[in-house]
Nucleic acid binder design. Structure first.
Lengths: 311, 311
DNA sequence: GATAACCATGCAAAATAGGTGCATGATCGA
DNA sequence: TCGATCATGCACCTATTTTGCATGGTTATC
């Protein structure tokens, strides 16, 4: 119920360029430019200034954007309370999450909602955590599932969002099936210290988890290969190129020559998966229901994962 | 920056009928109907129900309207703060007031603003106090000048408005120029107890002031005639039909055979004139400036009135 | 109990706001 | 200097919104 042009301005405050704002909101750059100009005209405020080949928020613009945070939150809160009090159903629901969450958690959630609320139009967007926050601001999605990142530009206390922990997803070790330890059900990271490791490129979300896990046990692993997708990582391991860490949420789905081992000992790495919503909307019945479904699914998957892969 | 359809819903909550909402907002009834239907569709809430030949808010609708009060206030507050912080100028400014206020206070205010802020488009609407509040809700005007009414449906602490006292406008007595007391400069109400009085129809704003003035001194005046406009009242007095009470703010502008006398004694009736704005907007520089101009003008008129009419 | 007044709404047509795509100009990095 | 990037203006188009009138249902009046 907040004017779309103000939302656009808020997205611009995140992106810094008209083009990126257009991409994120789904408009064309011309439309964003026109919207922001119109916003300035209606409000009688100068919100943007030319800055080199781009534009930049004025002090007034920054002030307005910052001040609009509680406004958005209050609207979300009101909307949620009205939905709850009136037992109403909203027509559209957008959810977003990073790759493994999208596949493992969001897809089942969408399926469940589709059956329990047939009239609800659910849209799922796969996007990395940073983009998920942007999509929340842009109101393209209403709920995001992300991995908690300490180095994130979105703090826990950001006035725009509310976050709740969904689960701590433990990292397992995957090793080739013909590896000497393959018959074990669990290992310690020490036992694999001398193995060639496969990880993601330095700087990625996963890589920081990787290093954190080994610094916890005081071991410096040798990084032999790099992969981006879990699929690739699993294939590398299956080909005997090395060993790797795989979140328990990520499925092996019958990969050849790969076994998953639980990690024991003092280094028990895990990635924290949290759900994020726009502040104020947390009490919405639809979001509450979704959080419940997500958590139930997560628990179910985590407990079932090891059993099903151990035949 | 709040969606126009929510504003329309808020106006409807005041009026109760689509037609009245249309009249107040400036839309056609069909447009209002379509807007409210669209609002329900977008929010996924049922806000209206059929009720006889009209429609009525549902519980959800009432909840939403009540809850939107602080939302509007917060936006107004943010807007005002941004205007102040950024030294910006808004393009449009609507002011409204009842007849004598419109002529005596709003017209000069508009003229002043026109010269000090040439780029500002000022619109003046004459409307009775109740309608002024509705126009504020409908965002047709940003500032209203009204007479404070205890019997008003808009309390002093209404979450939608903020009110500041502009002035206490004393009521003077006007009598025919050939009346025995015409040479006096002031009278008490007791001295005029036996005169035939001219007032407005019972139930009007002015009438309650009239009766309050006389109950304060314990006299029951004889009401001989009724008039609606000050013009008419003055003409009646000039024709020798009786005497009347005239706010000092209302000008005689050279009426024949009429003199204005100050009232002394314990019964010193006055009408309280207050400025009302949407809650949150009181800190807006434009509104602050306007309030200052209004108050200065009011003081100037009040002090000048008696002198100029005493030649 | 019939008639008139009132109220909301559906529909077709018109108006208008808003969006797209391309071209342009300006700026920055190589 | 050249190419890349970015914002914006313009012409065209789309889609939303509004209007005016007609309709159906409801209440008040006589």
């Amino acid at each position: 119920m907040i004017d779309a042009r103000l939302i656009t301005l808020r997205v611009f405050a995140r992106c810094g360029t008209i083009g990126a704002t257009a991409e994120l909101t789904g408009y064309s750059p011309s439309a964003v430019s026109a919207q922001l100009r119109e916003l300035q005209r209606v409000l009688g405020m100068q919100l943007l200034t030319k800055d080199g080949r781009g534009v930049r928020l004025t002090a007034t613009g920054r002030f307005l954007v910052a001040g609009s945070d509680p406004l958005i939150a209050q609207w979300e809160s009101l909307r949620a309370a009205a939905m709850e009090a009136g037992d109403q159903v909203q027509p559209h629901f957008g959810i977003g999450g990073f790759s493994s969450a999208a596949a493992q958690l969001l897809a089942p959630l969408a399926a469940t909602l589709r059956s329990t609320r047939p009239e609800l139009e659910v849209q799922v967007l796969e996007a990395d955590p940073a983009r998920c926050f942007d999509l929340l601001v842009a109101e393209r999605i209403d709920l995001a599932v992300i991995v908690a990142m300490q180095s994130d530009s979105y703090g826990e206390d950001d006035p725009r969002f509310e976050q709740t922990v969904l689960l701590d997803d433990p990292l397992d070790v995957i090793i080739p099936g013909n590896h000497p330890l393959a018959s074990r059900s669990s290992v310690t990271l020490d036992e694999l210290a001398s193995e060639p490791w496969i990880t993601e490129a330095a700087g990625s979300t996963y890589h920081s988890l990787f290093t954190a896990a080994f610094t916890a046990v005081g071991v410096t692993p040798r990084i032999a290969h790099e992969a981006v997708e879990w699929e690739t990582l699993i294939a590398f391991v299956g080909a005997g190129l090395g060993v790797g860490l795989l979140p328990r949420l990520a499925p092996l789905h019958g990969a050849d020559n790969v076994v998953r081992l639980r990690i024991t000992g003092k280094g028990k790495p895990a990635r924290r998966i949290v759900a994020a919503v726009r502040r104020g909307s947390i009490t919405s019945p639809l979001i509450q229901e979704s959080l419940g479904i997500l958590q139930a699914n997560a628990d179910r998957i985590l407990t079932a994962r090891l059993e099903e892969e151990d035949h």
